[in-house]
Nucleic acid binder design. Structure first.
Length: 1124
RNA sequence: GCCCGGGUGGAGGAACUGGUAGACUCGGGGGAUUUAAGAUCCUCUGCUUUAGAGCGUGUGGGUUCGAAUCCCACCCCGGGCACCA
């Protein structure tokens, strides 16, 4: 017998398989049997393949081979996520490829792709232009890390302690236009479609959190102004007082106490500007208190009006202003000749008062260039505002109202706490704050102080402000806002714990129920108002379903002793167990709650207090039954109150320590201990929250029963939130997900296929000029400037194709863009008409089984899902999710449990292992080491197991010298082999390779008993093993088989009858403890089995002198005799 | 802090939907073979214990005839998010 020699076998078969094209993908797969198996493609680093890669490659390969043997048509490709400059990848890729081949992986190399090649990235660029045309790719302002020294944008990783890694200059935040993919447009779909995916639950959860959808409400807090303001609003072309946002704006302004005039300008559909100006002059009085608002054409009317006004107005808002007739859509309006388009800007500015220009973002009628000309001519203050429709033509334009009407709007996820708002806080870097500083008319009294704070806050890093001991902020003196429900005036703060980028950049602060607001309120001595009572739920039912809580006239007291700060706890014996609670009780008729508390404390503890002090708060108990005799026993909720009482307030009372025939006593306890005991007592858990709130000085953030909230008191948080939102605000949803910034100032990557015309407007590079190649005349070493900016070739190329004055985009795309669609290329990798042909996509997509590291759980997988949806919407593909099933492989750690790294010298090179022990052993070792998705520590000793196993199989076959045939099913009598087929088939389907392998080992152990091995079972066994150890099984099949490759054989099947053994072992228990084992026939009757169980010696012993009251019988498992 | 995973012999890990805990593998002990070592084969291997048994799945409670598995509270480890209102 020849020894097992992996070296000889493995290279031999790898060559043969290649010669035979064994793994060619079928061109016309059967639609029902087509399977697309894909492992995430690697980045071909210079250091070569790592043992960590091997597990996922081996797992996908086993799975692909398994499917092929099951008769599936399988697409199993591989490629390279090559972000290096081309020269270097051309050296590293062959090394990687050799390493992969040495593992015996069954890729179809005819479909290899490489993202750094123009043949690939032209389709990445096509993807970009497709998204651009769909409005999903756009350039918009974003805050970037700017290094003034290098005059360049820095990635987060290049900023070290707030300084530039290259020149140590302090890095600034700067607003710059950046390219984005608008992934947020798909936020809802990306979230909702997760439910149907066969993905690891943890990964789905990670994506859900990343998307971070939160339902809540928006509330508006009008800024208090002592004088009634007078607005004159001039509408635009084809508009009028009843059109667009005008009715809504009028309502909103009037509701906050203003006077509003919206004159109906003559001939709105065919206007004459001079006529409209004259109409306003004759019919509307413009006074020094007037706030003049013009929208669109109304801004022209306003300007002409201001030109020859003989006094000034208070403020002028120009919404979407312009100064010439060169519209973005190229059309004419018809009113162009009705005025001269000359503007006396000096007089306009003089008479306009504060001149505020509001420029709607993404305007379709007025181009950015036209706005720029208006800006140059008019001056004044300019702001960009987010609008609901381009040119601010929607019926509701909240941004307009919040600016013109001067209100602060906030987003909250807890509308139920609206009545607990005691102040507002606004982020420092908001236009609202900037305006307050800039315009004294807005009434801010401490402008200098606020300005200083804002500057400090901007200079501070995020971490600095977060880690600050106290939350900082400055009160806006002279500014108050009106609470939308109570009408009370509230102070407003600028505070850096509020983020400008989330929600509206302002918050309603509820110190009693929010940690951060609580901290801030403590630091700035602001009131804290409890509006939600925590609920102890004694019910099995969901308390939030209960209606109408009872506002109980009852109270408990937290009695503190000044000398040692201990608090008094009442200990009640209930059902023989000590139950801890606070002393207190219910009010009698005619008694106030405070009086009742004083009386109860006296009765129960012996302390007589003259008064109770500060109320700690309310709490609620949800009862499943009534505590009172005779009252209704329906489940209900009672809300009680707690007060702080100090023994200093007591008369010379004596503590009563025992009462109620020894069932009640009192004890002074350390607060911590008291909280612990109360919390552990089943009945009064909620009282601990109250004590804790007092002791720890912390807010209670849980939902509960709303209190101190007018008509809403007594509602559960859920219901109160709904009703309060309805009454005072609007429903709103926010997301954590941000748009995907794709521009990179790097050399490697696909150039963004955009060119700018001489006016600076972007245009996509037409398809015939793709690939829009990366220039070759620049150095890619980092210097500061984007490398492409220095390419003469790129600039010349652009002017040559598009004309003089045209310039190229000089950024490249994030490499995640390449990898977010690559799986669409494999089905048709050589197509030069499109990224893939329709038929090929239909044949194979989406990917049936995708395998990769959990580190890609969010970005890559989310981006790929987004791109798939975007392409589906543009009609390129007809499926909306890229990966039907997903599995993660775990990490392979070094023997010491740390990450393998060159510096630690603990890296295991897969080449060495293949060389020493063979690819089959390495594959099986990694798959056997534990569950596929879990990490494991490399263990040199344990590798011996799989190696020995293969050797044992080798010997077993050689010793038995079988004549192998391609039988489908094991012999009927070989129960163990039917069980093995079942287990290996099921486990491999589920990616449970470790248990599949252990089943194979068990089968080998069984066959090691010479009585039980047959030619047919060996044939079945080798085919089950083939996906795991492809080389060794191929060699054995070659030697003893009927000819052909083992990998072309059919996967064995099992018979469900033959899986069941003739006889089965059953456990016999007495009172749940194992006392014996019996072997019973598979068809035996229950009664007979019980008799047999009783007859067992040890069981009989244990049953002696006992009466069996119950017998538990679980077929095929156990018999349990329960005695008295 | 919040959200996910996870905690089982000396080690990796198994255990269906609540039903004999520790499959399979490594390591270790003993034996056979060998001049010897290695390899191979046989055999034992959760802990305590004299038998019989008792104790055992991070800790403490609970539900159940029966809990690694379900419930409550807590501890520890890994991952993700984080002034996200």
């Amino acid at each position: 017998m020849e020894e097992y020699n992996h070296k000889k076998i493995e290279s031999k078969w790898q060559e043969k398989w290649q010669e035979l094209d064994l793994y060619e993908t079928p061109d016309n797969p059967d639609p029902d049997d087509a399977r697309y198996v894909l492992g995430m493609f690697p980045y071909p680093s210079g250091s070569g393949l790592h043992v960590g890669h091997v597990e996922s490659f081996a797992g996908t390969d086993v799975y692909a081979r398994f499917l092929r043997m099951q008769g599936k048509d399988v697409l199993f490709p591989m490629g390279w996520d090559a972000l290096h400059p081309r020269e270097r990848t051309e050296e590293t890729i062959p090394v990687f490829k050799d390493q992969l081949n040495s593992l015996g992986l069954s890729y179809d190399w005819d479909r290899e792709i490489n993202t750094s090649k123009p043949e690939y990235y032209q389709w990445t660029q096509k993807l970009f232009t497709t998204l651009f045309e769909e409005g999903l790719a756009e350039k918009k302002p974003d805050t970037v890390n700017w290094c003034p020294g290098c005059q360049t944008v820095l990635a987060n990783a290049q900023v070290i302690d707030g300084e530039c890694e290259r020149c140590d200059t302090e890095v600034e935040d700067k607003q710059m236009d950046q390219w984005f993919f608008n992934i947020t447009e798909y936020a809802d779909e990306l979230l909702e479609d997760l439910d149907d995916l066969d993905w690891p639950e943890s990964t789905k959860e990670l994506q859900r959190n990343w998307i971070g959808r939160k339902q809540g409400a928006r509330f508006s807090f009008p800024v208090h102004d002592t004088t009634t303001r007078r607005f004159v609003v001039l509408h635009g072309y084809k508009s009028g007082p009843k059109k667009h946002f005008h009715p809504w704006l009028k309502d909103k302004l009037e509701a906050t106490g203003n006077e509003v005039i919206v004159p109906e300008l003559p001939n709105p559909d065919n206007p004459d500007i001079e006529e409209q100006v004259a109409y306003v002059k004759d019919n509307v009085e413009l006074t020094e208190d007037t706030i003049l608002v013009g929208h669109s054409l109304g801004t022209i009317v306003a300007m002409k009006l201001l030109e020859d006004l003989d006094q000034r107005v208070k403020t002028t808002f120009l919404v979407a202003p312009y100064v010439d007739t060169d519209f973005a859509d190229g059309k004419t309006r018809g009113y162009e000749d009705t005025t001269d388009w000359e503007f006396d800007t000096e007089t306009i500015r003089e008479n306009a008062g504060q001149l505020i220009n509001l420029q709607p973002a993404d305007d379709t009628s007025i181009s950015d260039q036209q706005y720029q000309r208006a800006k140059d001519k008019l001056g004044g203050h300019w702001e960009t505002i987010d609008v609901n429709k381009p040119h601010a033509k929607a019926e509701i334009e909240p941004a307009l109202f919040s600016r013109i009407g001067n209100e602060v709007s906030v987003f909250t996820t807890r509308p139920d706490t609206l009545f607990g708002v005691t102040y507002l806080a606004v982020a420092p870097d908001t236009t609202w704050i900037e305006n307050l500083i800039e315009f004294p008319e807005l009434g801010l009294k401490n402008r200098e102080e606020v300005q200083n704070y804002v500057q400090e806050a901007k200079a501070k890093s995020k971490d600095e402000s977060r880690e600050a001991e106290e939350k900082t902020g400055v009160r806006l003196e002279g500014i108050t806002v009106k609470h939308p429900a109570t009408g009370k005036q509230l102070p407003v703060y600028v505070a850096d714990y509020v983020l400008s980028g989330y929600g509206t950049g302002a918050i309603m602060a509820v110190p009693a129920h929010d940690e951060r607001d609580f901290e801030f309120a403590k630091a700035h001595d602001l009131p804290i108002k409890q509006v939600v009572a925590p609920v102890e739920n004694e019910l099995d039912a969901d308390y939030t379903k209960l209606e109408d809580p009872i506002m109980e006239r009852a109270a408990n007291g937290v009695i503190t002793r000044k000398k040692d700060n201990k608090i008094l706890v009442q200990i009640l014996k209930m059902d023989g167990e000590d139950t801890y609670k606070l002393p207190g009780g219910r009010a009698d008729d005619g008694e106030t709650i405070k009086e009742a508390l004083i009386r109860e404390l006296d009765e129960e503890t012996g302390f007589r207090f003259n008064q109770v002090r500060e109320q700690l708060g309310s709490f609620a108990v949800a009862y499943s039954r009534s505590l009172e005799k005779g009252s209704n026993s329906e489940p209900h909720i009672r809300v009680k109150r707690a007060f702080l009482v100090s023994t200093e307030d007591a008369d010379d009372g004596q503590l009563v320590s025992e009462d109620y025939e020894g069932n009640l006593r009192h004890e002074w306890m350390e607060p911590e201990e008291a909280i612990k005991n109360i919390r552990n007592s089943q009945h009064f858990h909620n009282e601990a929250d109250i004590v804790e709130t007092f002791i720890n000085d912390s807010p209670s953030t849980d939902e509960g029963i709303v209190v101190h909230a007018d008509d809403f008191s007594g509602l559960t948080s859920d219901k109160a939130a709904e009703k309060i939102t309805e009454a005072f605000g609007e429903k709103e949803t926010t997301y954590n997900l941000q748009d995907w910034s794709i521009g990179r100032q790097r050399f490697w990557g696909a150039p963004i296929p955009i060119v700018y015309d001489p006016q600076g407007d972007p245009h996509p590079v037409p398809e015939e000029h793709l690939p829009w190649t990366l220039p070759e005349d620049v150095d890619f070493e980092p210097t500061g400037e984007p490398p492409l900016a220095k390419s003469e070739e790129l600039f010349e190329r652009t002017e040559e194709i598009f004309g003089e004055g045209w310039t190229p985009e000089i950024e490249t795309m994030d490499c995640f863009v390449d990898s977010s669609w690559y799986f669409l290329r494999y089905p048709d990798p050589h197509n030069d008409e499109n990224f893939a042909g329709k038929d090929a996509l239909e044949n194979w997509c989406p990917v049936d089984m995708y395998v990769g590291g959990a580190e890609h759980a969010v970005l890559h997988l989310l981006y790929a899902r987004f791109i798939t949806k975007a392409l589906a919407d543009s009609g390129e593909i007809d499926f909306r999710e890229p990966f039907s099933s997903l599995r993660h492989q775990g990490m392979v750690l070094a023997e010491d449990g740390t990450k393998m790294s060159k510096s630690k010298g603990n890296v295991v090179n897969p080449n060495d292992v293949v060389d020493r022990l063979g690819a089959d052993t390495l594959r099986m070792y990694e798959l056997f080491a534990g569950p596929f998705s879990e990490s494991f520590d490399w263990d040199t000793d344990s590798i011996a197991g799989p190696r020995r196993f293969i050797e044992r199989v080798w010997r077993l076959v050689h010793e038995h010298k079988p004549e192998l045939t391609s039988v489908q099913e094991p012999p009927e009598s070989a129960t163990y082999m039917h069980q093995t087929v079942k287990k290996v088939t099921e486990d491999t389907t589920e990616f449970n390779f470790n248990t599949a392998i252990s089943a194979l080992m068990e089968a080998r152990n069984t066959m090691h008993d010479k009585e039980r091995v047959t030619d047919d079972s060996l044939s079945v066994f080798l085919r089950l093993l083939a996906p795991f150890a492809p080389h060794a099984t191929e060699e054995l099949w070659h030697e003893f088989g009927p000819g052909g490759s083992v990998h072309k054989q059919d996967w064995p099947e099992f018979s469900p009858q033959a899986v069941e053994a003739e006889s089965v072992e059953m456990a016999v228990q007495v009172d749940g403890t194992l006392r014996g084992q019996i072997t019973v026939d598979k068809n035996a009757e229950k009664a007979d089995i019980i008799e047999q169980a009783k007859a067992d010696d040890n069981v009989a012993n244990n049953l002696e002198n006992k009466t069996v009251t119950r017998t538990i019988f679980v077929s095929g498992e156990l018999v349990n005799f329960v005695t008295e």
